[in-house]
């Protein structure tokens, strides 16, 4: 069984086809990067996989559960850290985490245990009593990802996790994402080549809503006859124009 599978997935808005005929098959424990420029359809894909948007056509599954007909099962299996950092600004780091525990109706003991575990995992100790609105972009993003982990998802979706972060914050977040590797399946979207290259087991290149190429870095290099992800990407993107 795949952690994530899509079959001919399509999302059309009034005038725009955001995702067109997407076929993905992502294994459990994999880190899979959806790489594409702005407007390629990455966020739309993630929204459909997390029950935040209904496909116009095709099907999508998380751990074998249908994202449309088995929504409540899928919601239990997935966690999402949205592209725009979504935290409760006036709550402290600890309170934000406790709040999400409350939404999953954890007991007091389980809440305490989960909050402590995630604060440790994300090295948030120093800021645990700081209000979210006082945190820098990098720490906010860490909190946002920690919040996505509370529900103990089997599949974690990170939409542009390092967008707008400085070099150091980005590196630190990469380290954390690597720590999560193999424990859960991670689908991350990015338009940074080096991020996809550094973190992911496999890379899917999305252009105008379509998956144009897929594979490990060396597979993509072999397919295009280019060195490095950036060159491979450019070659694939230009091929798409013909």
């Amino acid at each position: 069984m795949y952690a994530v599978q899509t079959k001919g997935l399509v999302k059309k808005y009034k005038t725009k086809t955001a995702v067109s005929g997407l076929d993905l098959a992502i294994n459990e424990g994999e880190i899979y990067a959806l790489l594409g420029v702005n407007g390629a359809g990455k966020t739309t894909t993630i929204r459909m996989l997390t029950c935040l948007s209904k496909p116009t056509d095709g099907e999508c599954f998380v751990c074998g559960k249908n994202c449309v007909s088995q929504m409540s099962e899928v919601k239990k299996l997935t966690g999402i850290s949205p592209q725009d950092t979504a935290v409760a600004e006036n709550l402290t780091v600890t309170e934000n985490l406790q709040f999400i525990c409350g939404i999953y109706e954890f007991s007091a003991e389980k809440t305490a245990e989960s909050v402590e575990r995630l604060i440790k995992l994300f090295s948030l100790e120093e800021y645990k009593n700081s209000r979210a609105k006082t945190l820098s972009g990098g720490w906010k993003r860490k909190l946002s990802i920690a919040m996505a982990m509370i529900g103990e998802p089997r599949v974690l979706f990170l939409d542009e996790p390092t967008l707008g972060l400085d070099v150091l914050a980005r590196r630190e977040l990469w380290n954390i994402i690597e720590k999560l590797k193999s424990k859960i399946t991670i689908i991350l979207t990015t338009h940074y080549m080096e991020e996809a290259e550094k973190l992911s087991d496999r890379i899917g290149i999305m252009i105008n809503g379509e998956l144009k190429a897929e594979g490990t870095l060396s597979e993509l290099e072999a397919q295009t006859g280019e060195q490095g992800l950036e060159n491979a990407f450019v070659k694939i993107a230009e091929g798409g124009k013909e």
Binding site: L52, S72, G79, P82, T85, A88, I103, Y104
Partner: peptide, 13 residues
């Protein structure tokens, strides 16, 4: 206006 409600929509709320 932010993504906060979206995040909660993705939970069992």
């Amino acid at each position: 206006s932010g993504a906060f409600l979206m995040r909660l929509y993705a939970t069992p709320m």
